[in-house]
Design a protein around this nucleic acid. Structure first.
Lengths: 206, 206, 206, 206
DNA sequence: CATGAATGAGGGTTCATTCAT
DNA sequence: AATGAATGAACCCTCATTCAT
């Protein structure tokens, strides 16, 4: 029962990320998932509510990661930045489908409620990262930076790696359909780059 | 004559960016543009070809900017970086609708031809920026960095500012529908941040 | 359930025969049949597949008639010819709508598959009649004739009676819209004529 | 000028015969004929009037043939039948496109005027052939036959050869698209068959 | 609880025709 | 006399959803 729900959500996630929300029909999802067409309305109410359910499902799954990091008092701010990058890159790239949906669908959402819901999630993530940086600044270890855009730069780089996969595949000579290879190559690349970038960016200059 | 074509493209751009390609009907475009529904097929052939025409239209418009910068021999690499950021931020944010379409639609495009077309444009932009950085590296002014992701970080930050407008509006206490204020505040913020970021990132450390 | 399918096929047959395949819209069929427009796609998939379903439906219905005749060993070749004419005239004239569609649509069909499908049915009918004539020839009862055109002459006369109804109604002083009277008068006329014609044509002359 | 009109009619004839009247768009005709789309309405008034013009054009062209035959007093009724078959087969098969249009379109015509117009032409042809047969009967050379269907049988055989080309190509092992071969083989076959058939049919039996 | 049947609304596209030039 | 631009209507089809069973 719940398995079927989760299965539908998985299929929906895949199709939404591949074809977009409006480019995916409920028929497509039902067909791919091997369930009756009416079952989707039956379980979720509507296509839009299916999306909301998907967001809730995935968000609850990837929620605790950053919070845990923040509670860890033994780590220095620099260590936390490194761990943050590791966790964040893994989180986004391994959930690139969901991340893609959230990012591409956000600007086209007509319903204020859903937009606020997605924005809330993004704000929460922002606040957690902000906390880490603020902590380092209070300890006079990080310099003062534009907080919104510093976070935005990290998020944006990952979004770029998600949405412009076709660009990076071209640049890195990877077949566009070979998702595994792409992920295997882009993840360490992203980690190294972002750590180096944040180091240079946050470091107090003399 | 051609005015009507351009007008249709403008309306299509706005609606595509607000509702997505699949979320916008040809009827919507015709209605908003005040032209007959059949006019769109008459002028462009199909909805997809309308998108291609839009891409061609906007790309030709914003093409020369970066090339010009590259040809300017009097500027130092650091100067070029600064000008690059100024030009690029202006270009993207002032064409944020088109940028939004290009970015959000890219991963869901089914047609290989159009995906390649968009990727081509992105590659071209990448190459021009790469040239500037490479030049600075050859002059031993910039340090060695991950080229793809350094560019991706700049692009991604701008994409973030475009696609996650709702997030930044919330963080910066701007009404989501007040586009002018958002642009006026985010543009200098982006310029300052990216210059500072690239400075720290490219600078040779001792 | 299946009644509705058959009802739609009946209506489609009537309209196709009156207005032609391309002259009939799916809306016309849905309207005349009193079903929802989307129902046609739901049941048949597409307008073209509706035609295929109609052909399959009618062909299966009228298939066995000639085969049965062929298996009857008690009849002499002349008896078989007479029965053939009786059966064939009844079959075509009572299904004149379907026969009209098959004949008028055949030369304009673009899809190779459907054309081959219709041709297959015509070939099968040809083979069955050929068998009867060949049998008579082997028994030295019928003379040697052009097989294709002897069959073609029978088929053609019936086609003529179907497609040029307006001509025959004029010649026989029947109102063009009075289908019952036309059928009642033309059927015995056709039977008598074709029997006489085939008798003279197949008979061995001295 | 008039050349252009005739050219358009030729193209229309070809397309109407290949795709049917309703299956052919005015755009198709204009495109194939290499003339401006608006020119067809400009010259002919409407698509339907174009068809009427085509019928008038072709009818006037093939009109006099049978009349001439009838006036020839030197020929015996049997000679006239033979010449009739020769002329008629040539006329229909060499104008098979036009014949196909006339035959397939006739039952679907909604306009009473056009149907009457086409029926008129068919009646005229019928009367001319009827005259020949009646003459032979008055001279006690031909036996009494069903006049309508005797003519209908000849017409029908030719219609069959025109509309069921795909059947005959299959039976005679001719490629369906090789029109020249088909015509070269079917014309003498038709002439021989119809002469033989009419001989047996009209001959007074003892 | 689950689903096949059904539907109103709207999708993109093409139609024959007209009009201003 | 001739045509590029434009249009209202209609095309076939698919959409998300509902409802009776």
């Amino acid at each position: 029962m719940n398995d079927k729900r989760v299965h539908i959500l998985d299929v929906a996630e895949q199709l939404f990320s591949e074809r977009g929300f409006d480019g995916t029909s409920v028929r497509d999802i039902a067909g791919q998932a091997g369930v009756n067409l009416a079952m989707i309305s039956y379980y979720f109410g509507s296509k839009e509510k299916l999306l909301v359910a998907l967001i809730a499902h995935r968000s609850s799954y990837t929620h605790g990661i950053l919070e845990e990091l923040n509670r860890d008092d033994k780590l220095s701010p620099w260590d936390k930045i490194e761990r943050l990058v590791d966790l964040y890159v893994d989180k986004i790239i391994n959930n690139y489908r969901f991340h893609s949906i959230m990012t591409t669908h956000l600007p086209t959402i007509q319903s204020d409620d859903i937009r606020e819901m997605i924005t809330d999630i993004k704000v929460k993530n922002f606040e957690l990262i902000k906390k880490i940086i603020t902590e380092g600044q209070q300890q006079k270890i990080f310099r003062k930076v534009d907080m919104e855009l510093t976070v935005g730069c990290v998020m944006g780089t990952l979004t770029q790696a998600t949405l412009s996969k076709s660009l990076y595949c071209r640049l890195m000579h990877i077949d566009i359909h070979d998702e595994d290879t792409y992920r295997k190559k882009i993840i360490p690349k992203l980690k190294t780059h972002l750590k180096s970038l944040l180091k240079a960016h946050l470091e107090i200059r003399n």
